[in-house]
């Protein structure tokens, strides 16, 4: 505090003569300069002689502060806050969009996976039915072939049997003719045949 007082004292000789014309406040001003430290003076906050100076400097400082806040600081800070809010909002929108994109991609992946699975099933099914069809075809062909061969063979057997049976009747007729000829004498071929046939028919 002594620094202030000595500073004030140092200033006074230079200022007082120059401002000599304004005597009324000069006297109190000097008192104030020393009065702060001395006991018995006015209680400083209630000393009216310091009021003009305090009001004057408060006005200057507060107007400067107000202008600085209104023109510079508040716009700057609200710009920062708005920019941040805008950035956060736009990034949220971007994130929302990216999420939608991801969802679409996942959906299309799922769809193509399902399609591929369906296709694979179809191919498997087709192949299976084709193979089964082919097997069926071959089996049918083989069966038909076997049936044909069987039929041929049966036919052949029937033919052979028929031929054999024909021969039997011829042999029987000849044998009968021969037997009858030996026993009875010559008999007409037709009679023998009819007799053999009659016997054969009766046997059957």
């Amino acid at each position: 505090m002594s620094w202030f007082i000595s500073q004030a004292n140092a200033q006074q000789p230079a200022v007082v003569p120059a401002e000599g014309g304004h005597a009324p406040t000069e006297a109190t001003g000097t008192t104030v300069a020393h009065g702060g430290g001395e006991h018995g003076g006015t209680f400083p906050p209630f000393d009216p002689s310091t009021f003009p100076s305090q009001l004057f400097w408060l006005a200057i400082v507060f107007i400067a502060l107000y202008v600085l806040m209104a023109k510079k600081v508040i716009p700057q800070i609200s710009d920062i806050l708005e920019a941040r809010a805008a950035k956060i909002a736009s990034e949220l929108v971007e994130a929302e969009r990216a999420k939608a994109e991801t969802d679409t991609a996942i959906a299309s992946y799922e769809a193509s996976l399902a399609a591929a699975r369906n296709k694979a099933n179809a191919i498997a099914h087709e192949t299976r039915s084709k193979v089964a069809h082919e097997i069926d075809g071959r089996r049918h062909a083989a069966e038909a072939q076997l049936a044909a061969k069987l039929a041929d063979t049966e036919q052949h057997i029937a033919d052979v049997k028929k031929i054999a049976l024909d021969h039997v009747s011829a042999i029987a007729t000849e044998t009968t003719e021969a037997v009858v000829e030996a026993l009875v004498g010559k008999v007409g071929r037709d009679e023998v045949t009819a007799a053999v046939a009659a016997v054969s028919v009766g046997k059957h």
Binding site: M1, I5, Q11, G29, G35, G36, H39, P44, D47
Partner: peptide
């Protein structure tokens, strides 16, 4: 009370 004293620096 001394701390509340007002001292002139420049007249």
């Amino acid at each position: 009370i001394h701390q509340f004293g007002i001292h002139k620096l420049v007249d």
